[in-house]
């Protein structure tokens, strides 16, 4: 029995999928941190990446939070995916388990507005602090932004 199957068997709510030969664990929002800590105990010592996919039109639970885990000792990868609701998207932060999730979660918050509960420093990271909206959401249109030095072209 593979390490991933053993891990998933501990949780009733978690389903294991195969996506192009990669292990994907679908986790309930409430189980997110619990499953993550079991995964860490099972040998997934690196949290490579945390990101979000906005399923605005196709799913009632709009946001999919995706974390890519890596086990160096078992040479295995595991992707865990949970959902966050349309109103007040909140999911537990993975920073207490993996400090390396810090920047990735800040980026996910900045780009999608998903709040990672328990993150020590959840501020914007790529956009300026006074930016309105979350740019990678599907309802955030691509457009132009007025430039601060606009008046300078009026020089005759």
């Amino acid at each position: 029995m593979r390490i991933v199957e053993k891990l998933v068997a501990e949780f009733e709510q978690v389903t294991l999928e195969d996506s192009h030969g990669q292990d994907v664990a679908r986790v309930e929002n409430a189980d997110w941190l619990g499953f993550a800590s079991s995964a860490k105990a099972a040998g997934f010592e690196v949290c490579v990446d945390v990101t979000v996919v906005d399923r605005m039109r196709s799913r009632p639970e709009r946001y999919e939070v995706v974390a890519n885990l890596l086990s160096m000792q078992h040479r295995a990868r595991l992707r865990m995916i949970t959902t966050a609701p349309r109103q007040e998207p909140v999911v537990a932060s993975l920073v207490p388990l993996w400090p390396g999730a810090d920047f990735a979660e800040r980026e996910a918050y900045d780009m999608f507005g998903v709040v990672f509960e328990g993150h020590p420093d959840l501020t914007r990271i790529l956009m300026p602090d006074d930016w309105e909206g979350h740019p990678l959401r599907k309802d955030f249109g691509v457009g132009s932004v007025p430039v601060q030095f606009k008046a300078s072209h009026q020089v005759n």
Binding site: T123, R124, P128, D129, D130, P146, Q148, K150
Partner: peptide, 12 residues
């Protein structure tokens, strides 16, 4: 005064 608020990284 500029009509646009200056960008500021206050909380960051």
């Amino acid at each position: 005064e500029s009509q646009f608020a200056p960008t500021d990284e206050g909380a960051q």
